[in-house]
Write a protein that binds this DNA or RNA. Structure first.
Lengths: 140, 140
DNA sequence: CAAAAGTTGAGAACGATTATCAGTAGCGAT
DNA sequence: ATCGCTACTGATAATCGTTCTCAACTTTTG
């Protein structure tokens, strides 16, 4: 139960730009593995480790959001709104909707205080099936 | 991005009882690895795989709650209240407080519906420093 | 242009979890 | 009490995501 400290990149490389682009092109949250596969299809010789490093860097600078899927994978997404927000994620296709949750923010802060907890941060995400995937699945 | 289906145990074994006890003795959330190490200290020859299976079983029957630590480990805890609830966890010592959040339940369900998502489940946990750990840390 | 240092990529290493499979032990029936 | 059917166990191998290693390679600076 320790919290690691990430590092931000210092030089500009085409690899990192490609990762940034690919992440922006993705509809929702994607895993490093998936992103790597996508980049490979465009016959770039980009390495898996580099994708991991690039994503960690983007997350460190706040250019991307990251979260853990229920299966334990780390998922990333280029985020539109810079502020604090949460996500509604399709567990089938990864589509993500950014959601505001001011009432949840208040609730989280208040709950932590009431129990004597300080330095509180919360993990609030909703996983479900988006309309498109639900339709596709019922057809199967 | 697939969702596995767990199974519930059918027979009573001393191994599962030991896991249940050890889990109950733990103050807060613990990992399978930690629990296994603890059980080994009491010179039981219990296997790691069995601990994993027992914890999965307890979680399947609702006797234990599980969540992912920010580091990606699966943590378990013997829960007092049987119903659906969330936790306020100390990121230093693992102490967990069970919290009710009916308003969050409603919010999650409503938000999912509004965006056309079905079969929604939410992940809501608050991590912070408990009073004891905060005090200990400020002294350092 | 050349040296200095951050980056890259292939593959090894790692840690948590799951699968394999022969041997063991619940538990209902006898 | 014992028998048999199977679920369960445990040592180990296998998986899977992620990080590390390190030589080769750029980018930046002088």
């Amino acid at each position: 139960m320790t919290t690691p400290t990430p590092r931000a990149p210092q030089r500009t490389t085409w690899q990192r730009e490609r990762v940034r682009e690919a992440l922006a092109d993705a509809r929702g949250f994607v895993s490093a593995q998936t992103l790597h596969a996508t980049l490979r299809e465009d016959n770039t010789g980009i390495g898996l480790a580099t994708v991991y490093r690039a994503l960690a860097g983007l997350a460190a600078t706040g250019e991307a959001d990251s979260l853990q899927s229920p299966e334990g994978e780390n998922l990333y997404r280029a985020c539109a709104s810079p502020g604090h927000h949460h996500h509604l994620i399709c567990r089938s296709c990864g589509l993500a909707v950014e959601i505001e949750a001011s009432q949840v923010e208040v609730w989280a802060r208040r709950t932590a205080e009431q129990h004597g907890f300080s330095d509180a941060q919360h993990i609030v995400d909703i996983f479900g099936l988006c309309a498109t995937c639900a339709r596709a699945r019922s057809r199967a």
